[in-house]
């Protein structure tokens, strides 16, 4: 018998971590994401420069002038400066939007799944209503009506993305609330709020954590799309804005659009590798799917 089995039972979180750290794609995701986050946080200390400032001739190709390793854009702004400062807002909005999505989605889904009956009915009708609205279009309308800033963009993305989370949470709650320990908690007189947040939610958490990770990826793509359309905060450099601003000149200069796009792709790719890894770690049996 192995040593592990002789010791007391391993906690589920520990077991998940044990599986996760052996998952090569997921670890690659962690490495890529760490590099990107560090570059956006500290990159401006190594390469100083304002991303909005015109510093050189326009459309300088990458690798020609050592000061501008990724070249300059149509106005003569440094692409590398944009890459380093443009990641922060994208990541921040992505994370904030995912948090808002999870708060709305988990709350409504938990209430619907726990209470059932007319509460469930009403909340699910609202969810269906929000699923009818094409998300990006609705987000565009919200951002334009309430003037674009990082906060309104994050809120808009959250407001349009929560229905899937709500459905997932509801399904998990329906499953978990029938289990014995919930009945036991009820028997000792625990209140509804306690049962929802302290008893059911922790047990429904693994799929929600996976979904939260994937939501970050979707939110980053959303933010990039909005900035690309020119609906981001005009005073903040972001990867999507770089692509949108340089889009009319792509046949003269490929680099100001290619590099920011690669950065967005790599970020979302890393996040989804991590999400897949977490999914496998939480459901060891499902791994072969």
């Amino acid at each position: 018998m192995s040593e592990r089995a002789l010791n007391k039972a391993e906690s589920p979180a520990l077991e998940a971590w044990r599986i996760f750290r052996r998952n090569v794609p997921a670890l690659i995701g962690v490495v890529i994401l760490t590099v990107i986050v560090l570059a956006t946080l500290y990159g401006s200390f190594i390469y100083t420069g304002d991303a909005f400032e015109i510093v050189w001739a326009p459309h300088e190709p990458p690798g020609v002038t050592p000061d501008f390793p990724l070249g300059t854009d149509y106005l003569g702004r440094s692409v590398v400066a944009g890459m380093l400062t443009g990641g922060g807002p994208t990541l921040a909005v992505g994370a904030a939007a995912a948090a808002i999505t999870m708060v709305i989605g988990v709350t409504l889904g938990a209430l619907a799944g726990f209470h059932g009956g007319w509460v469930d009915n009403l909340l699910m009708r609202i969810t269906e209503f929000f699923q009818v609205l094409p998300a990006l279009l609705f987000a565009m309308v919200l951002v334009t009506l309430f003037s674009p800033s990082l906060l309104t963009i994050a809120i808009a993305i959250g407001v349009v993305s929560w229905p899937q989370t709500a459905r997932l949470t509801r399904a998990e709650f329906l499953k978990v609330k029938e289990l014995e320990y919930v009945t036991a908690a009820r028997a000792i007189g625990a209140r509804d709020a306690r049962i929802i947040w302290k008893v059911i939610l922790p047990n429904a958490a693994p799929p929600l954590i996976v979904s939260a990770t994937l939501t970050i990826g979707v939110a980053i793509l959303f933010e990039a799309g909005l900035s690309f359309l020119g609906l981001g905060d005009p005073n903040v450099m972001s990867w999507g804005l770089m692509i949108g601003a340089n889009r009319d000149y792509i046949l003269d200069a490929w680099w100001p659009v290619t590099f920011p796009g690669l950065a967005i792709f790599l970020t979302v790719f890393a996040v989804s590798l991590i999400g897949d890894g977490l999914n496998d770690a939480f459901n060891p049996k499902m791994r072969e799917r």
Binding site: L221, G225, F228, I243, G261, F265, V268, S272
Partner: peptide, 9 residues
């Protein structure tokens, strides 16, 4: 990959 690429890009 398909999931992670921004469609406009």
């Amino acid at each position: 990959i398909g999931y992670a690429v921004p469609v406009f890009w």
